[in-house]
Amino acid sequence: MVTLVVATTTDPASINPAKALLAMPGWLPGPSFQEDMKSFAKQGVRLLQHHKSIVKEDNLDQRWEQVTGESVEEVIFLSKHTAVSNRPALTLHPIGVPHLKEAEIPPQGGKPGWAAPPNPRIGPWLRLLNNIASSHNLLPEFEITLEGTHHGPLTNKPTMFIEIGSTEEYWKRQDAAQVIALLVWEGLGLGGGAAVGNWSGENDKNKVLLGIGGGHYAPRHMDIVLKDGVWVGHLLSGYSLPMEDPKLSKVETNSKEIGGTWRESIKAAFEATKSAFPGGEILAHLDHK
């Protein structure tokens, strides 16, 4: 079983942490995969570099298994983050667009109604990232935060994005790239220590948070993750819970129920979270904004 860490050369917030990671000892050339993609190997980790948009590399986990014969356990994407606030930030989040209707075209990859299994490392790595960023003097300049579930690419294995935001100035920050590289290095146990965030349903802290509602950065959900040490499943911000008032519909209807894809979104997020945390107790945490 291998972990895929994926970076693109088109994004400084992606390739710079990958380069910092490769500067650490013990990496070797990885299995041959495809001509336009380099791979590097250390223990059970495969670091991949390609030249495409990070959200368009669909089914990379399946394709890797078919070509190399190695089973993929999880996928971790390195990427940039953009925000209207332009605030410097280091973020983690699961992926999917479970709220979109079948006919809609996802603006940033994925497919309507789909949610990837959330990587169980998200919660433990948020806490680890907070510690590493603090020890490297990135706090309080950088905000450490979760994001709501959004965008692609399509994957079938537990997946998360790690991002540097929120403008080109910060995407290119070498100190931020080094912190992300250390997060991956320490979090996956590449330096010889224990990996952080390996899931076991027998763990005494087997409660998994399914965040429903609130803003994109889920501060109330995040407070529980940092305070109580729970695991993190999907986080559905308010915009991922579309609701339609039947009284406002221009079409004649006898329905008295709120329409929209909010039910489908919650169901897809719940099922994906359940698949990533077998044996876990999934707790819905509701926020309102």
Rank of each mutant, 00 (worst) to 15 (best):
I212M: 00
V232T: 15
A195W: 10
A194I: 08
K227V: 02
N206Y: 03
G260D: 04
V251R: 13
P242R: 01
S200Q: 11
L235K: 03
S255V: 02
W199G: 01
P219V: 10
V196L: 05
R263N: 09
G193L: 09
E257D: 15
W185T: 03
G260A: 06
E257M: 10
L241A: 00
S200W: 10
K247Y: 12
L226I: 13
K247F: 11
D223R: 13
V208L: 03
R263H: 14
K207I: 13
G229M: 04
K250D: 15
R263P: 08
S249L: 14
H216V: 13
R263V: 13
D223K: 15
L182S: 15
G193P: 07
L226S: 05
D245F: 03
G215V: 00
M243C: 06
L209H: 02
W262V: 00
M222L: 10
G192P: 09
K205M: 11
R263K: 15
V232G: 02
W185Q: 05
L188H: 06
H221V: 07
A218P: 08
H216W: 07
L209P: 05
L188I: 08
L188K: 09
G187I: 06
K256R: 14
V225D: 02
L210R: 01
G197H: 05
G197A: 11
H234F: 05
K256V: 13
S200I: 10
A218D: 09
G213C: 07
L183W: 07
K205E: 13
S237Q: 09
I258E: 03
G214I: 01
D223I: 01
N254W: 11
E244K: 12
L248T: 13
G187N: 08
D245I: 02
H216G: 11
K227T: 12
I212K: 00
W231C: 01
K227M: 09
G189C: 08
G197D: 09
A218M: 15
L235W: 02
V225L: 08
S255Y: 01
E186Y: 12
G215L: 00
K207D: 12
G191D: 11
P242A: 02
G197N: 07
G260S: 05
P246N: 06
D228Y: 06
L182P: 01
G259K: 08
H234L: 06
T261F: 12
G233T: 01
A194N: 13
L182H: 11
H234K: 06
G201Y: 09
L182V: 04
E202S: 14
D245K: 01
W262N: 00
I224R: 14
G233S: 04
G193I: 10
K207A: 14
P242T: 02
N206P: 04
G189M: 07
M243S: 07
D245C: 03
L210H: 03
L241R: 00
L188D: 02
V230W: 15
A218I: 12
V230I: 12
E186C: 07
T253R: 03
E186I: 15
Y239C: 02
I258Y: 05
V230A: 02
Y217Q: 05
L210W: 00
V225W: 01
S255K: 05
